[in-house]
Design a protein around this nucleic acid. Structure first.
Lengths: 242, 242
DNA sequence: ACGCTTTTTGTCACTTTAACAAGAAGATAC
DNA sequence: GTATCTTCTTGTTAAAGTGACAAAAAGCGT
């Protein structure tokens, strides 16, 4: 079947990043404007090819995060999303893209004067609705990234990655509301998240003030999974009667 | 930074499969004995390189499933697990492996006389405990695959992929017990899975008989996620009192 | 018919949840 | 300085869900 002289095809390997953040209570993703063909001038995910054949995938993701978004990977949540390798996804030839999902706390506009100058935060609604066309299959990748984030909010402390090192419970609630696109009762949310062991650690004697009563501050605890989980509402629970 | 003549490195791209099934109430994974160096004679995941640069990743996974395991991909659950691309994982050079998780119903030993002859089902315990050494980083990949399956059992109808087209609720319970490594109460399990909308569809007027009372048969329903989920026990829920 | 096994239905104390009321702690207006 | 506004925090309560176990049902073998 496979004769001994056959040698497997060599592939171009790209790393692309879905970087999510919250801005004004809405979920945003970082996009760059492509400077070269194909899809020149089109919006696309930040990313690029491996630097050399010694660079690991995660290392490449961290490098792109720094180069294209001016973000420090050691401060962010960064996890692999998946590999996208349809034969026809890139007109230049066979490119397989390994994608990573990054979560960043509230951030200013990408710094001008850096390589990140071409980058801008875009509300995700505009992308999933198809208003803003994207290069390659990047719309699918973003949709997968959002779904990953939505799902992990239920069972992991991922929401804290959207927050500053210390945060209030209503900060956290805004994350859940923005990512899930729902409204939650602040009073039940307040107790529910605190009841999860090792999810939140209180930062004693610190309070943040805005308008109303000052709120307690918390830090992310050591939990890696939430027990019990924070269930996503509306997601059709059991109907009774009918 | 990147000068115009620079061209990105070309990479060897492999596809590897974690194929799980239940045999005698224990979880097994399909392994092959490597016929070539490196790791000749060592146990490894079935897999191989892309056939040509027109073959999609999923297509390659399906092909390997057929060639190396003699399994029909259209009958199986098959999903991407992840990309493994540490620079040092393959001594031959830079190989990035895109892995897939497949779930198969109870199956006979791999058919002799086919390309799958070198393949054999191995209990996963022997692998996670390190008794049975594996080629490359395949032990890590298997561990990730098992964890994926364990987790998806809670929130998706994945367990039905371990079963025949029609199955009883205690068949289903055996899947949960084997994959999670726990004991479940048959009576509570019986009602819990039936309460989840669209998880199980009863097959009327059919019953399977073994020893005791004949059991109702079911088919997998249209649900893609389970609401409410089937929670994994022991996983440290809230402690009260203390 | 009797006992054996497995499936299916019942029951009940207990916990968790959602919905809403109300109190607490500041800032601001008057 | 007191009233009012806002937001955070604690209480309360009816309803729903959960886990543990009893018991009935439906076959098979003797």
């Amino acid at each position: 079947m496979t004769d001994d002289t056959w040698s497997p095809p060599r592939i171009l390997l790209a790393v692309d990043l879905v970087i999510l953040t919250l801005r004004e209570t809405r979920l945003h993703v970082l996009l760059v404007e492509r400077g070269i063909d194909p899809y020149r001038g089109c919006a696309a995910l930040p990313g690029g090819f491996l630097n050399n054949d010694r660079e690991g995938l995660l290392a490449a993701a961290r490098r792109e995060l720094d180069e294209e978004a001016d973000l420090d990977a050691t401060q962010l949540h960064l996890e692999q999303l998946g590999a996208y390798g349809d034969a026809s996804r890139d007109p230049r030839g066979r490119v397989v893209s390994v994608t990573y999902l990054a979560i960043a706390p509230r951030l200013p506009e990408p710094t001008a004067g850096t390589d990140a100058a071409r980058a801008a935060w875009r509300p995700v609604d505009a992308i999933v609705s198809g208003e803003l066309p994207l290069a390659f299959d990047h719309d699918v990748i973003i949709a997968d990234g959002i779904e990953r984030a939505r799902s992990k909010l239920e069972h992991t402390p991922l929401a804290t990655a959207f927050c500053e090192p210390t945060f209030t419970i209503s900060d956290l609630q805004q994350v859940y509301e923005a990512v899930w696109g729902v409204d939650l009762d602040p009073r039940n949310f307040y107790r529910k998240v605190q009841k999860v062991p090792d999810f939140l650690l209180p930062v004693d004697s610190e309070r943040r003030v805005t308008k109303g009563r000052p709120a307690r501050l918390f830090t992310a605890g050591p939990a890696t999974t939430l027990h019990p989980p924070i269930p996503r509402p509306g997601h059709t629970v059991s109907r009774q009667g009918e």
